[in-house]
Each structure stands twice: as structure tokens, then as C-alpha cells.
Design a protein around this nucleic acid. Structure first.
Length: 259
DNA sequence: ATGGCAACCAATGGTTGA
């Protein structure tokens, strides 16, 4: 089965592009981030027409995540546990009832800039909550995937020029440490495991001709539990999406698991 | 040395993103 993550940067502002890409990549499960609409305003009809069940956790204007699945969804959970006062819609999880069920968490991890500051503190505390949640999910010993826009550049070679990004919230040592803590629970980063090449990007800024110049960063990731990692057969970064009319600044990253 | 783009809400500019 194929599982994708994609930050769409507003599902309403570019619905035709979104539908075209969803048709092209033809995945079993798709995690969307930055839908930028309230739950009720999600374009359910158009996406259901492509054969997807939709679980949506939205909010007005910003953030917002959704899980699309060609298989039935069960146990839908909205919001990341660990802080009842957190009102930002950045996490949704469900059990995907394929022949071999997979639990999938779709996440939009905070950007954290400027760092240091309140936003960076929020990013680090959100990452700690994600790690705590992953730790509890790992005790279930099932196939599960945490997929999303992590806003983390894992290695120097995952960006076009580390000198530009070294002091950014996406690449700071504390950010990478927190990401490693999550991985070291026993999670496998799909691209790193199945491909691992340097300079393969999932985001190119709209500004300064970043796409044309190849100035990208790799910040969209799928982390797999051991049971899911055993089934990993490949990863694709669907770079074509960045060259379409009215593109998102991110492209889908797709992991394939053996059925 | 700086800004450079896009989306949002609101409103002819400010905020956010990465």
C-alpha cells in the first residue's frame, strides 16, 4: 500500500491542483497539512469522488490536517495528547482498515521561527509531546506511521546550503536532537532507509526563484514503527507537483509498504 | 544589504509561513 504526506498550503485556494495531484499519485492513504480551513469547510464531496474517506481536523485560516483513505477509517483521534490548552489543529490519527491494518498519524509540526523565542519553545514542547505519544503507540506493537510536515531538516545534506539554514529553527541542534529522540524510540525514517541520497527536497520557497534555482529543503517525512518498517519497499518524492500551475510550496512524499 | 512569494482576514495593510 502507498501512504503519502503532503502540505497543500490551503486546500481551497488550489483545489484543482490538489485533485490533479491526488489522482496522479493514486495512494491508499494521504496525510494533508495546512488545509487552512475549518473542518466543515473541507471539500469532502470532491475528494470523496476520488474514492477517499476523509477525517478532518481543521481550524479557521491556519494549520489544519486531514487523513484521506481508500480503506475504512476507525478510531479517529483529533489533536496531539499532552496539552489540553493547545488549540492549534496539527494532528489527526486513525486506524486504516486495509487487509493489514495500519495506524496513521498525520502531523503538522510547528515551524518554530524565530528561534530562540516563544514559537521555538512551542515547537520543542510539541516535539516532546509527539515523542511521548509515539512511545505509547509503540507499545501496541502494530504497523503505524507518523507522516507529515515535520519542519525539520534532519541532515546538512537535506538542504541546498547549510550555511543559510544552520541557525534556523528547522535545523538547530535542539531541533535535530528532538527529532532523533523520536527516531531512536525505534522509528524508521522512510526516505533515509529506502533511499538516503543527499539533496532530495520536499519544499522550495515561493520567494527568490528557489524552485528554479534548486534551493530546496527536505522537511516532510514518514516515520515507521518496526512492524511498518519491515514492510517498506520504497519511497518517492513527487517532485513534479512543484512545477504545476499554482503549486503548493511542498510536494508529496510517498512510502510504499508491502501488502 | 535587502527583498524577492503566497495565503489568510480584513480592508487598501498586517500576520504567518520556512
Amino acid at each position: 500500500m502507498k501512504i503519502a504526506t503532503w502540505n497543500v498550503n490551503s486546500v481551497k485556494a488550489r483545489l484543482p491542483t490538489v485533485l490533479e495531484v491526488l489522482k496522479d499519485i493514486d495512494c491508499d492513504v494521504i496525510c494533508l497539512q495546512e488545509i487552512k480551513c475549518e473542518t466543515d469547510a473541507f471539500p469532502y464531496m470532491e475528494i470523496e469522488e476520488l474514492g477517499y474517506n476523509c477525517a478532518v481536523h481543521g481550524q479557521k485560516s491556519y494549520n489544519g490536517v486531514a487523513l484521506l483513505s481508500k480503506h475504512p477509517l476507525e478510531d479517529v483521534e483529533k489533536g496531539l495528547p499532552g496539552d489540553d490548552s493547545d488549540e492549534q489543529a496539527r494532528y489527526i490519527e486513525a486506524l486504516v482498515l486495509a487487509d493489514r491494518p495500519v495506524r496513521v498519524g498525520a502531523l503538522y509540526l510547528p515551524n518554530g521561527n524565530p528561534a530562540p523565542g516563544d514559537k521555538y519553545d512551542y515547537k520543542l514542547s510539541w516535539m516532546n509531546r509527539l515523542t511521548a505519544h509515539a512511545k505509547s503507540l509503540l507499545t501496541l506493537e502494530e504497523s503505524f506511521v507518523l507522516a507529515g510536515d515535520y519542519n525539520v531538516i534532519p541532515r546538512d545534506e537535506d538542504c541546498w546550503d547549510i550555511a543559510v539554514w544552520r541557525d534556523d529553527a528547522l535545523a538547530l541542534p535542539k531541533t535535530r536532537d528532538a527529532f532523533h529522540e523520536l527516531k531512536w524510540l525505534g522509528m524508521t525514517e522512510a526516505f533515509e532507509a529506502a533511499d538516503g541520497r543527499a539533496h532530495q527536497y520536499s519544499f522550495w520557497d515561493y520567494q527568490a526563484g528557489a524552485w528554479q534555482k534548486g534551493h530546496g529543503i527536505r522537511i516532510d517525512h514518514l516515520l515507521l514503527s518496526p512492524q511498518a518498517a519491515d514492510r517498506l519497499t520504497g519511497v518517492e518524492i513527487y517532485k513534479k507537483a512543484r512545477g504545476l500551475e499554482k503549486p503548493s510550496d511542498h510536494v508529496p512524499v510517498i512510502a510504499e509498504l508491502a501488502d
